[in-house]
C-alpha cells in the first residue's frame, strides 16, 4: 500500500465524493416528488389510471441504468431536432443528463415501493376515516400517505443506498464523480488497488453515515409501533 499517494489523491477524491453526494441528494428529492403521484395512480382501482404510469416504471425498472444514461446522453444528442430544441442548453450538460436520468430511475423504483405501501395500509384505518366522514383527499393526506410512507421507510432507505452506488455510472458520461476521479487518477499513477481501496472506503463512509441518519428517522417516525 502506497499511503503517500493515497494522501496526495485524497483531496481530489473528496471533491469527487461531493459531486456524488450532490447527484444522489438532488435526484432522490426529485425522484420522491415524482414517486408520490405515480404511486397514487399505480394504487388506483381504475385500470387506465393504474396502467398508464406502468409504462414509465416498467421502462426504468426494466432496463439497466447504464443503457438509460447512454440513450439519454449519447443517443438523444444524435438527433438534430434535439440539438436545435430549447432543451439543448440543458441536455448538452452531462450534469443535467445524469440528474434527470437518476431522478427518473429512482422515481420509478420509489413509486413502486410507495404503491406497495399504500396498498398495505390496513383497511380498518381507511374505513375508520371514511366512517367519521373524511373526504377522499383528506383521507389520503391524513391517513393513507403518512401511514404508507412510514411503512415504506426501510425499503426506501435501501433504494437511496442503491442510488448512491448506481451514481458511480456518472463517470461514463464524463462527470468527475468519485468513481470518475478515481479512474482518472489511476490512469496516471497506475495504483489501482490503492485508489479503488480509498474510493471504496469513502463510499462505505457515506453509506454508514446515511444509515445512521436513516435509522434515527425511522425510530422517530415509527415510535407509535413500539
Amino acid at each position: 500500500m502506497n499511503w503517500e499517494e493515497i494522501f496526495v489523491a485524497l483531496p481530489k477524491l473528496l471533491d469527487g465524493a461531493v459531486l456524488t453526494l450532490e447527484l444522489v441528494f438532488i435526484s432522490c428529492i426529485i425522484g420522491f416528488v415524482i414517486a408520490i403521484p405515480v404511486a397514487l395512480m399505480r394504487a388506483s382501482q381504475n385500470w387506465w389510471v393504474s396502467n398508464i404510469p406502468l409504462i414509465y416504471t416498467f421502462f426504468f425498472r426494466g432496463t439497466p441504468l447504464l443503457v438509460q444514461l447512454f440513450l439519454f446522453y449519447y443517443g438523444a444528442a444524435q438527433f438534430d431536432a434535439v440539438r436545435e430544441s430549447i432543451f439543448w442548453p440543458v441536455l448538452k450538460e452531462a450534469y443535467w443528463c445524469a440528474l434527470i436520468v437518476f431522478a427518473l430511475n429512482t422515481g420509478a423504483y420509489t413509486a413502486e415501493i410507495f404503491r406497495g405501501a399504500i396498498q398495505a395500509v390496513p383497511h380498518g384505518e381507511v374505513e375508520a376515516g371514511i366512517a367519521i366522514g373524511m373526504q377522499k383527499h383528506t383521507l389520503y393526506r391524513r391517513i393513507v400517505l403518512p401511514r404508507a410512507i412510514r411503512m415504506a421507510l426501510p425499503a426506501y432507505g435501501n433504494e437511496i443506498i442503491l442510488m448512491l452506488k448506481s451514481s458511480a455510472l456518472a463517470y461514463t458520461i464524463t462527470l468527475f464523480d468519485l468513481t470518475g476521479v478515481t479512474r482518472t487518477i489511476i490512469a496516471r499513477n497506475y495504483l489501482a488497488i490503492e485508489m479503488y481501496f480509498t474510493a471504496g472506503v469513502i463510499y462505505l463512509l457515506m453509506t454508514f453515515i446515511f444509515i445512521q441518519v436513516w435509522m434515527r428517522v425511522e425510530k422517530r417516525l415509527l415510535k407509535f409501533q413500539n
Binding site: Y74, A77, Q78, R83, T172, T174, G180, T184
Partner: peptide, 17 residues
C-alpha cells in the same frame, strides 16, 4: 472531458458537446 472509449468522444464531438 474524458471518455472511456474513443467512440464516445467522437459522438460528443459530433453532437457539439
Amino acid at each position: 472531458k474524458l471518455y472511456d472509449t474513443q467512440e464516445n468522444a467522437y459522438l460528443d464531438l459530433a453532437s457539439g458537446r
